[in-house]
Design a protein around this nucleic acid. Sequence first.
RNA 1: GGCGCGGUAGCUCAGCUGGUUAGAGCGCAGGAUUCAUAAUCCUGAGGUCGGCGGUUCAAGCCCGCCUCGCGCUACCA
Length: 710
Amino acid sequence: MQEPKRYLVTSALPYANGPLHIGHLAGAYLSADIFVRFLRLNGKDVVYVCGSDEHGAAITIRAKKDGTTPQAIVDRYDESLRTTFEKIGISFDIYHRTSAPIHHETSQEFFRTLNQKGEFVEQTKEQYFDESASQFLADRYIIGTCPKCSHPEAYGDQCENCGSTLSPTELIDPRSTLSGAKPVLKSTTHWYLPLDKYEDWLREWVETGKLEGELLHYPDEWKNHVLGQCKSWLDGGLQPRAMTRDLDWGVDVPQEIEGSEGKKLYVWMDAPIGYISATKQWAIDNGKDWKPYWQDKETALVHFIGKDNIVFHCLIFPAILKAHGDYIIPVNVPANQFLNLEGRKLSTSKNWAVWVHEYVEEFEGKEDELRYNMIKNMPEQRDSEFTWKGYQETNNNELVNNLANFINRVIVLTNKYYDGVVPTINPDLQIVDSSNQIEMSYQESELVDLHDKLQEIGEHIRKYEFRAALKVLMEISSTGNQLLQFNEPWKLIKTDEETVKVVMNTGLQVVTALSVACRPFLPFTSDKIRDILNLPRLEDNGEYMDLLNKLSEGEVILPDGHKINKPNHLFTKIPDEVIDAQIAKLEATEKANKGVSYEPVKETIAFDDFTKLDLRTGTILTAEKVRKTKKLLKLTVDLGFEERTVVSGIAEFFKPEDIIGKQVLLLANLAPRKLKGIESQGMILMAENSDGVLDFVSPGDGMGNGFVVK
RNA sequence: GGCGCGGUAGCUCAGCUGGUUAGAGCGCAGGAUUCAUAAUCCUGAGGUCGGCGGUUCAAGCCCGCCUCGCGCUACCA
């Protein structure tokens, strides 16, 4: 494979129903931003696109809850996301949105093409329909009692109380969120993408990098967990996936297609196409042609995402692109794992997060400090951790003490000794190099090493190893500190002024290199260093490449006689109080979450309703785990007059041997149901607290079996 | 339960296709130094590489079993 002619880089489209947190940043945005900034600095043709994902049922429901329109919701969060990204320095070429007309047109064109080519399979299934609102109900539009935890407000796809995944037909007493009416089952037709048919080429492409005999990527350049996840899906056998939904918020299925009425595109069909429509809009805005970026084989398409999106970007979207026929497929999908916060998973609903829009307000001017810490702890190969203490330590020890201090030392001394003018040197003079071993001539010593380190940073970035790249950047700065320490210009100035000039000139070259090399990671700092050096700010247009060329030619990168500015602190220490305040904020959240939440009392029932329940005392005689399940135990319960087999979802809390002989209460007249092939004849009564912990509700000692509870 | 990824110094993490005394940063201990935002530099202590077994002349790296964390999936009458 040869070097690509151009790059099209995407970051996952954030969903426009909430603000941005550090997990998003660490997952899909910072890594992409480093990558594209580096490419631009090397004079590459690259377009970096992103935008708000503004469709899907969650947004309409949110709108309904807030008493507003879906458009108002997405407008609000699109604005929030857009400004937050800008403030933290994510350098999209365009941040678009899927509610834009050009996106609707683009995704409809895709649908139309796939339909015309006969790629879809139409299938009719039974689905809930709200007769009073005369429309089909998406999973999220149906609420009912959770069959698992009896939470009365479970959604059709998931119960937020117990976290179980549900399907709408499982809900007890389902009702429509639109009208409150009881929905009826009615058949509806959808267009399915037959992923099973693409399985063979997808497998070959993922595992060998080859598609129709052409090598498109080297599989060992893909991350382990990405390949593993793909193989897992492929081995499990891909199933046809519906590309349409019965919704009223989203991209319409093209009108001329029969049966399109009331149908919208599935968000996972529509969202990735958002990358394409964003590129189109960018091309219009900049007088460019979008097509080569998506349709020319010499373009490298790279998707930056979090691990939750792997299947969509590695299998489903490539399948859509290839089914269309005119498009290239990604050369790599360097997905990151998840970032945890202070030992716990980030959670939007539990407010367990560091919100980026809050950070940029509370820590104004410290954008790079957050970027640095996030890159240093980026979850590249496994889940990683953000802690405020760690943030403080890296800031104080690495940014202030190492990087900013080195630069400050050089700038201060240059101003002191030479009134801020880069000194002319005698190139034959020798200085001690940073390993403090051999004395070498000026050009051989630091500048050769500098060139190698800059090269090394590039190699790491090209391999998506951003943590490693950042580490090398800091090594350059450490080397600079050593240079000063070993040569001690503050002492030498008294005896050997000419050699001091060599030391200081070298230090200045290193600072200049840092102003370029730090750019992908710390763009704001790059500007600050350029200002201090009295050099023009970088325009992200080949400057890294120029720098390497000059160094390999043995040319200096900051010429003699250049006048620099006065010193200015690049970073300042973050005191304990600031960190303590942030930790206190999280503790307050934790406390709020810990507050026991009680479920609302259900609707009042008549005494007769209660008497319909036949509750009995019983004793567990036997208990064994149901094979191939995590939660199920098969129990035999003695009711005195008979024995019942009961399957109960308590295996996570109780070992079979520990509950034999346990007195329990059993709902004895519940209709039997088969679970994993075993008929369960009744239900054991359990109490569940707000943490989801279960315990038996038992009669007191000595109560025999089979007696009625009333 | 199935599948995938991971479990390496007190902390955060590197370790390429198996090959000499297992690495980095922070933290810790001792020393040097003062140009610099009490910053910097040097030296050192710290690990039976999750556990057990196997393959091999040789295993952190390969194989099997077990265990813990995370994700996907099945699943909670």
